[in-house]
């Protein structure tokens, strides 16, 4: 495999194109697998694309590079998204994506760090990633490393108590090398978050817990880039980016649909979806 150099590109149209390709890979692997989480992989695709193609310092050919920035996928069911960006930035061959969820594959239904270099920690049980991120951030500070930790959470996920325990820990230890990102797509499994169990007001909760809060449109590349720049200027406290997103984003018939949380596209749906994504590309 060729060693890819991450160019840390800031060109918005380049990033939009990469995000479109990420979505294509997500849909293809899910459709082949026949099961998996479509909605939440698509809603966070733009954010994670910016992280891996632009913001994070990382070496796909040297996954354990000591000075790398870390990405923790706390909402582990969005594994296809993580696998897509890892493959596309050169951690492993893109052909491996078609083994998703199959017996013997390193691409488990939920990410497994034991099996796949590039995955920092196994996730899938919601609510545990922010605590782990805190631990890494504390460790980086002990070693005087300037690396950052980015942790992606679902909006339903923040119903877990451990998230708020971790929120308190991060503020207490003034973890300004930590950034939590909430994929605020408004939906969980049993319905809209507001109906299952309301989480609003989200921003004032994090503010009250001592965090710096930034609110963005999670599908606007410029806003994503700017918010991640702002994170680097905040001192003495952790930052949370509250990203307003659309579940299923990029495929019209998946967008905003509760039922596409945990089902994969059929062959026909895949064809239609790929057509939409290529038209968008012009």
């Amino acid at each position: 495999m060729q060693h890819q150099i991450i160019r840390r590109e800031r060109d918005v149209s380049f990033l939009e194109k990469q995000a479109r390709l990420v979505r294509v890979e997500i849909l293809k692997m899910l459709s082949l697998a026949g099961s998996g989480h479509t909605g939440g992989s698509l809603s966070a695709a733009d954010i994670v694309t910016v992280l891996y193609f632009s913001k994070m310092r990382h070496r796909p050919h040297e996954p354990m590079w000591k000075e790398r920035d870390r990405f923790i996928l706390s909402k582990g069911h969005a594994a296809p998204l993580l696998y897509a960006v890892l493959a596309m930035t050169g951690y492993f061959d893109i052909s491996v994506l078609k083994t998703l969820r199959k017996l013997g594959s390193p691409l488990q239904g939920h990410p497994c760090s034991r099996l796949l270099p590039g995955v920092e920690i196994s996730t899938g049980s919601l609510g545990q990633g922010l605590s782990v991120s805190n631990g890494i951030a504390l460790g980086l500070k002990l070693d005087n490393l300037s690396s950052r930790v980015y942790c992606l959470l679902g909006d339903g996920e923040i119903q877990e108590g451990q998230v708020w325990e971790a929120a308190m820990t991060a503020a207490h230890y003034r973890l300004d090398n930590l950034c939590a990102i909430i994929d605020l797509n408004g939906l969980q499994i049993d319905g809209p978050v507001s109906q299952v169990k309301a989480i609003e007001p989200v921003d004032s909760k994090w503010l009250a817990f001592g965090w710096h809060v930034i609110k963005i449109d999670g599908h606007n590349m410029a806003e994503i880039l700017n918010s991640l720049d702002e994170v680097e200027r905040v001192k003495e406290k952790p930052t949370v980016i509250i990203a307003h997103t659309i579940k299923g984003k990029g495929v019209s018939f998946f967008e905003g649909k509760v039922e596409y949380h945990g089902i994969a596209p059929t062959k026909e749906e895949l064809m239609k979806a790929l057509k939409e994504l290529s038209e968008e590309g012009g």
Binding site: Q159, E160, G161, I189, D190, K197
Partner: peptide, 30 residues
């Protein structure tokens, strides 16, 4: 239930007796 009433099938009870069903969200300890 904890946001899995479709999978655990408690959703049937929830539909018939919404006043006696409590979705606690993704918060199993709670």
């Amino acid at each position: 239930d904890a946001d899995l009433s479709g999978s655990t099938k408690t959703g049937k009870f929830a539909k018939a007796f919404p006043e006696r069903f409590f979705n606690i969200g993704i918060a199993e300890q709670d």
